[in-house]
């Protein structure tokens, strides 16, 4: 589904990603872990098409298409979804209106009929249950005045509505209490199928107790320096990142 080859990216001339290689197949869950500043969020942003990052080398193929050539909206329409680390508050745009516009733009791109108000509302009601989100929240301006947990739940709710092929969860667990974490993870797990894939970007292992990964990759200084299964995450939880840093840094000398 997704093939990342030798991906290099920089921001304002500073290289952040220095040769990422990653293969994600349908049905898989990949966790990207790593210390702060290792490039985890950059990778998520580059995949979603954030313009500040300049890709200097490498390629990303998503379902046979060159992802890097596409505008952010086209990536979303092709089925890439980024759950933001910091969802943006947009006063004056109601969540409902926003989602309906987004959903219908995605449907139009895929050659589907737009949903009318009735069908849209019933779909919304169905998906709301997944993340236990209150309808009152959705009649308000997008994310405005939402708590941290409500914002993250809203991200997963949007994901449920848009039914992406590849979901990238950027630090979705940060700042969540255990109840919210359980709700969010539960939503993600229910959306999982053998046709879609998930990349979970996280600093902490805790989330992976709830969203169990097939593969764990450790990112450090812009490269994947270690890959393994969920046991690697537990090892990191126990020993921290220093041993990996040392391994990599001594190898470089």
């Amino acid at each position: 589904m997704l093939t990342i080859k030798n991906l290099h990216a920089s921001i304002e001339g500073t290289p952040i990603l220095r040769g990422i290689n990653l293969e994600v197949k349908a049905g898989e869950v990949h966790a990207i872990m790593g210390p702060n500043g290792s490039g985890k969020s950059t990778l998520a942003s580059v995949l979603a098409g954030r313009e500040e990052y300049e890709v200097t080398e490498g390629e990303v193929i998503f379902q046979g298409k060159d992802l890097l050539e596409m505008a952010p909206e086209d990536r979303a329409r092709e089925g890439v979804f980024l759950a933001f680390q910091y969802p943006v508050e947009i006063p004056g745009v109601s969540s409902t209106n926003f989602l309906r516009t987004a959903l219908n733009q995605v449907r139009e791109y895929r050659g589907q009929e737009p949903l009318d108000a009735v069908k849209f509302l019933s779909l919304m009601k169905e998906k709301m249950k997944l993340v236990e989100i209150d309808q009152k929240l959705l009649s308000r301006s997008l994310n405005e005045g939402f708590s941290g947990g409500e914002k993250k739940r809203n991200e997963i709710f949007q994901m449920a509505m848009l039914e992406p092929t590849l979901s990238i969860l950027d630090e979705t667990d940060s700042g969540l209490d255990i109840d919210a974490l359980r709700i969010v993870s539960n939503g993600v797990n229910q959306l999982k199928s053998d046709k879609n894939a998930t990349i979970v970007v996280t600093h902490y292992q805790r989330l992976l107790d709830y969203i169990v990964p097939d593969y764990v990759h450790v990112l450090y200084k812009g490269r994947i320096v270690k890959s393994g299964t969920k046991e690697l995450a537990l090892e990191l939880e126990e020993k921290g990142y220093d041993w990996i840093k040392e391994e990599v840094d001594s190898a470089a000398v």
Binding site: G49, A71, T101
Partner: peptide, 20 residues
């Protein structure tokens, strides 16, 4: 970017924000 990342065309996204 947030609106675009949800599949909304850039021109329309701009319009939505300005209208808001």
């Amino acid at each position: 970017f947030y609106l675009q990342a949800r599949g909304i065309d850039k021109t329309l996204a701009k319009g939505l924000l300005l209208y808001a």
